[in-house]
Every structure is written in C-alpha cells, then in structure tokens.
C-alpha cells in the first residue's frame, strides 16, 4: 500500500510539573492517499497529541521518538521552509473555531491568509477562491461573510469557515480534531456531512479524531482506538464497531446509547481513563478490563495482525470466539 503518512513507534514525552511524562507510547498508524482513518478514545488518551505530532504542533520541550514519514519526508527533522511546506500540505480543523480563529481579523483575512502569505496569491484572486469554497461548505453570501468578524457568526457557521480555510490550500491530508464537538447536535450532523462529502469529492486523506465510535464508523474507512497513549486496535470501521476484538473497544461500543434498544441504565466501564504515564506495566487497560488475567499484568501486549486488522490484546482470539 502506498502510504501518504506512516507513523511508527511514536513516543512523545512532555514536561509536566517539572518531570517528563509520557503522553504517547509506541503509536503506529498509517494513512493511504484518499483514505479516512478514525482515531477514537477517551479524553487524554493521546488522540490530539498524535495529530499535533504530524504537523509538529507540540508544546515546547516535547521529546519525540519514533518516525513520522509524510510523503517520504522525515517529519521530525524538517526545519524552516520545508516544515512550512509540510504544514501547507496538511490542513488542520480544530475543535473550537471560536478560539482558533483570530477574533480581531475578518473572516476574509482568516480564509485567505495562507494563500496570500504562503502562495503569494493576489488578494482579489484569493477572495474569489474563498467565496467559491464558502459556497461549497454551505455558506451563502460569501462576499459579505468575508467582511464580517468571527464574533458576528454562529458556531456552526464559523466551523464551516474553518473547514473552508482548511480546503482552500488544497492539502493532501486533513487532520480533523473533534470538529463537531463544540457544536450543537443539529449543526453537528450538517457540518459532518459537508466535511465527509467534500473530502470524498477531493480524494483527500483524513485523520478524524472523535470520541464517538459510531460517528467514526460512519465516515472512516478504518478506525484506530487509543487508550492511555497507545493504539489498542485498528480495523476496518464497520468490523470494529460490530465485532470489537479488544475489550476496551467493546466497552466503548457498549457505552454508547442505542436508538434500537431500551436501556434502564447506560453501560459504563468502571474506573477512570488513565494517562500514558499512569498506565501499569502490563496492558494499560488491565486495571479496568473485565476479562483480565495474570498474563495481562505481566506483559505489555504489542499490536499484532488479527482478522484483517491489528489488536493489542493477548486474549483477543479466545474473547472473539466467546462473543460469537
């Protein structure tokens, strides 16, 4: 497979409270051109850090081990113009557009900034392109929107502006970091549909970060599940959701309320999500796993190929059999 992005053995340590703490541990992930990969996990599981590592947007003092290759370039060693070229080719859609768009500059300035500063496109030309892309993301009356300020637009509209800005530079890879989490439910569906449609139209690859397993299954070809800074399972989205191999994935899928069946109480996973530096020596999920055995405390399971995907659980086969 011709990979656009290949991450292998990525370990990231950040200085927190005066000591270096591991936030990502041995993360391996690849994305092919035009492929959408979901990254699912609880808060603090390292989803955003993984995305930020790809465009080198980590906090100062971060220590990075492992390799990240994007279109053949070794990302951690890029400097100056080559790093900016990488960033131009990978667009990021952030969770909170209100905070991630400069409040004192116009929407037009935000949309055209990358084109005008990096690609030296003339203002009139850049604005014309911005209006066309705004129309594609469902923002009518483009010329007027360009002159408005972010505080004059609703959250949903602003997130469409963010998506339009990400598409304007014609990137090869889109990093969407919970792009609909800050929006209300009806807007979420619209924004998600637009993002999905435009991505497919353009053949863009996407890393889609969410904590919603079902949403990831709906828009992504493959889904990776993260826990405590590690990848627990990667498989085709449909398989992952319906026939989870890892107990953690199964717990995530069970925790989501279903429209079809009536539940007295929602299923919860006991315990709290752990950060990578808090994880025990063996399997990081061993403290909360209902299927835990002594072996899970003794050895740390690596990702291994199984059933068309990869899973990091020593008991994956026997559990899969017992489910069926």
């Amino acid at each position: 497979m011709n990979d656009l992005l290949r991450i292998s053995g990525l370990t990231v340590r950040l200085p927190l409270d005066g000591e270096m703490r591991t936030v990502l541990s041995d993360v391996s992930l690849s994305i092919a051109a035009g492929e959408a990969v979901g990254l699912v996990g609880e808060s603090g599981s390292g989803k955003s850090m993984t995305a930020r590592s790809i465009v080198r947007l980590l906090p100062p003092g971060a220590l990075v081990e492992g390799t990240i290759r994007y279109r053949g370039n070794d990302v951690p060693s890029l400097r100056g113009q080559r790093l900016r070229d990488l960033r131009s080719s990978v667009s990021m859609v952030f969770q909170d557009p209100r905070a991630h768009i400069n409040p004192v500059r116009t929407v037009g300035d935000f949309l055209t900034e990358a084109l005008r500063v990096n690609q030296r496109v003339a203002r009139r030309e850049a604005e014309g392109r911005a209006v066309r892309v705004l129309d594609e993301v469902g923002v009518a009356d483009g010329p007027r929107r360009l002159r408005q300020y972010p505080h004059e637009l609703s959250g949903g509209l602003l997130q469409r502006v963010m998506i339009a800005a990400a598409l304007l530079t014609e990137p090869h890879l889109l990093l969407a970091d919970e792009p609909t989490t800050a929006l209300d439910v009806t807007t979420q569906a619209e924004v998600m549909a637009i993002l999905d449609e435009l991505r497919r139209e353009r053949g863009l690859a996407m890393l889609f970060i969410t904590h919603d397993l079902e949403l990831a299954a709906a828009v992504c070809d493959r889904t990776a599940v993260m826990y405590a800074g590690r990848v627990m399972e990667i498989r085709a989205s449909a398989l992952l959701h319906d026939h989870a191999l890892h107990p953690y994935t199964a717990a995530l899928a069970a925790a989501r309320p279903s429209l079809e069946r009536r539940a007295e109480r929602l299923v919860t996973t006991p315990g709290r999500p752990l950060s990578a530096f808090e994880a025990p020596d063996g399997c990081p999920f061993s403290t909360r796993c209902p299927h835990v055995r002594q072996r899970c405390h003794d050895e740390r399971p690596d990702l291994r190929p199984l059933d068309g995907g990869q899973v990091a659980c020593v008991r994956a086969e026997e559990l899969a059999v017992s489910h069926d």
Binding site: V55, L57, L83, R84, D85, L86, R87, S88, S91, M92, F94, D96, A99, H100, I101, N102, P103, V104, R105, E113, A114, V117, N118, A165, T169
Partner: peptide, 28 residues
Amino acid sequence: REHVQTAVSRGIPYQAVVRRHALRNAAV
C-alpha cells in the same frame, strides 16, 4: 493563544504570525 496555533499549523512564517496575530492583538 489557540488562534496563533492555527496560524502556525497553516505554515505561516513565524515573523508573520508574530506581526499579524500576536502583535496585532496585543495592540489593543
């Protein structure tokens, strides 16, 4: 601030980020 991260993530040169975002917003 987050919007400065956005600008950096788009590959805007650092001097331009400082001028167009940090200094511009600090001007108030």
